[in-house]
Simulated scan of single mutants.
Amino acid sequence: MPSLNPYLSFRDTARQAMEFYQGVFGGELVVSEFAEYPDMGVEPGEQNLVMHAQLETPDGFVLMGADTPSHMPYEKPAGFSVSVSGDDEAALDGYWNALAADGTVTMPFETPPWGGRFGMLTDKFGIDWMLALNATQG
């Protein structure tokens, strides 16, 4: 069965970002460096950068990321958000608080007109997030 997973691009901070996300969401993180694939054309000083990282969490999230080597064009992520939603308020509060640390809250995690809770932020690595606690059905 196909899956749809966010794949985040970084410039020299993929390892720190993916380890941060592992701290937020838990799970198993597997990291491959460019040094493991010498034919990728990456400069010798960049061999320790992340060629591919994959985080699989106990909740079933899969988040991937990599560094963009200096010989390739890079633009900071823009125009999308990673969205996390569900019914577990305690878990979502924990994710919110961790992702917001040293980040920028653009909309507090509060009750919107449609119920539940909703918030938006940019984390310390420049990734935009939306978190939503599903409204209770009455």
Rank of each mutant, 00 (worst) to 15 (best):
D87Q: 13
A135G: 12
L49N: 07
S70T: 14
A91D: 05
F109G: 02
P44R: 07
T122L: 10
Q47M: 12
P73H: 11
G94C: 13
E56W: 08
S32K: 08
M107G: 02
A91C: 01
E110P: 14
M64C: 05
N97K: 13
G26Y: 00
L49E: 00
R15A: 15
F10N: 02
P108E: 13
P73E: 03
S70D: 10
D12I: 10
D88A: 14
D67L: 06
M120R: 14
E19R: 08
G138I: 02
G94N: 10
S70P: 12
T136P: 14
V31F: 01
P108D: 11
T122Q: 12
L29I: 01
H71E: 08
E19G: 06
E33L: 12
F125D: 04
M18A: 07
A132Y: 11
F109V: 03
V42D: 00
E75V: 08
E89V: 04
T111K: 15
L99H: 11
A132C: 14
L55M: 06
L133S: 01
Q54P: 00
T111L: 00
A17F: 07
Q137N: 14
G45A: 06
F25Y: 09
L63Y: 06
P38T: 09
T111Q: 13
A100M: 07
L121M: 10
P108R: 11
L29M: 08
M18I: 01
G65M: 07
H52V: 04
M120K: 05
F109A: 00
M107E: 06
M64G: 04
D67V: 11
L133K: 05
Y21V: 04
L8I: 14
F20Y: 07
T111I: 08
G23Y: 10
Q47P: 05
P69H: 09
M40A: 13
M18N: 07
G94Q: 00
A78T: 11
G65F: 05
